[in-house]
Nucleic acid binder design. Sequence first.
RNA 1: GUCCCCAUCGUCUAGUCUGGUCUAGGACACGAGAUUUUCAUUCUCGCGACUCCGGUUCAAAUCCGGAUGGGGACGCCA
Length: 426
Amino acid sequence: MIRVRFAPSPTGYLHIGSARTALFNWLYARHSNGEFILRIEDTDKARSKEEYLDEILGSLRWLFMNWDEEPVFQSKRFEIYRRYAEDLVKRGLAYKEGEAIIFRVEKGKTASFEDIIHGRIEVSTDEIKDQVLMKSDGTPTYNFACVIDDAEMKITHVIRGDDHISNTPKQILIYNALGFAIPRFAHIPLILSTDGGRLSKRHGATSIFEYKDMGYLPEAIVNYLTLMGWSPGQDREILPPDEIIKLFDVKDVNKTGATFDIDKLSWMNGQYIKDMPLDELVARTENFLKEKNVIGGGFDRNIWRGVVSVYKERTRTLKDFIGVHDIFFKDEFEYDEKAVEKYLKKPESKNIMSKCKITLEGLPKFDKISIEGSYRKLADDLKLKAAELIHPTRVAISGKTVGAGLFDMMELLGRDKVVKRLERFC
RNA sequence: GUCCCCAUCGUCUAGUCUGGUCUAGGACACGAGAUUUUCAUUCUCGCGACUCCGGUUCAAAUCCGGAUGGGGACGCCA
């Protein structure tokens, strides 16, 4: 039985890099019918916070990562670490220095391990200093608690970031001293920020919930993150979670650090929006708008359904739907100044808008086919190109030069709103 | 500074293990064009990379060595 773990430290939000580490663990567990365990590394009492833990767990759930057992908290296991440390002292493998317990590293040896991704890695123990096991304040160090927990939790594969490669030889020494079986290790490459170096706050959003907030879908994030360091081959890129689970294997993860590219994430998010069944997208956009407190009195789900269906092909994030919502359900929305200037401030503009208005008021039926017919006829009568009516109308009713098909928009808005908005420019 | 890891288009990657099918494939971005009432959709085309130097070989992106570059670690942080 394969058992992997994700071991976050609740001293900050779950960021992109950690989420990817968690994801690779989770994918590997699900792929191999194994177990995915959570261990909370809260030994640093000063920095660990409950709210961070909640956010981390919430982020994992949001990204579909379910775990199989109750999470293990290191803060509840201090006695266990102490016992192991005392035992090492008794056996002469560690010594006390004040309240601290320190592991003695024998020089002139080699600490080595076989990494699933990198192959064999060897380090001379001459490079390794004696290691603090228990700190003076009675808490264990990372490398000590990590070894004991991975062993006691029967973790078979330790999948973690590249930055832990140099910790591993130290941990190997402790595994051996304690007589524990050594798990398999897979050190996955880090995610870099655009200027190289670690991903950090300075270079845009790093926390998973910020991406949620920006209107990215969890399945798109999972898909995108998986592709940073792994590829299913056959030039495939859009893969729903189920498909990824089927194909993913840690041994296929590559060794090179990857730079996070939000443009590609956005493109991918747009693909997921485009391909999502309409009713699901309607529900999800509605939830998103509710969370953002955008939805007010005038909201109508049937109209929204129509709106979503004409906009879904051209929308990249859920957040884009906020502006769309406002156009259809609010009377006051932003007008793009330049667009107004370009299409509605010409000498003849008022006259044209008036004619449009009168035409629309006279229509027996206000559906897109009738509207389009009337507009094309009016353009003919005025000896104008249809575009010369269409563009100003679009700006007048939506404030923007871009959007869904104009006649779709007009039908969805309904005659009253369209006429009122045209009046603003008559 | 010491140790470790890595090295294909601007970015993510395929190919590297098992050398020839790679004058290096795909995607994002970018540029041009087409369609469309506009566009943020779609389609077509284009741009664009094997870090360098040696070696092995009939043949190297692929194997070996070195250099350079980048990243990581050197905490009683995790």
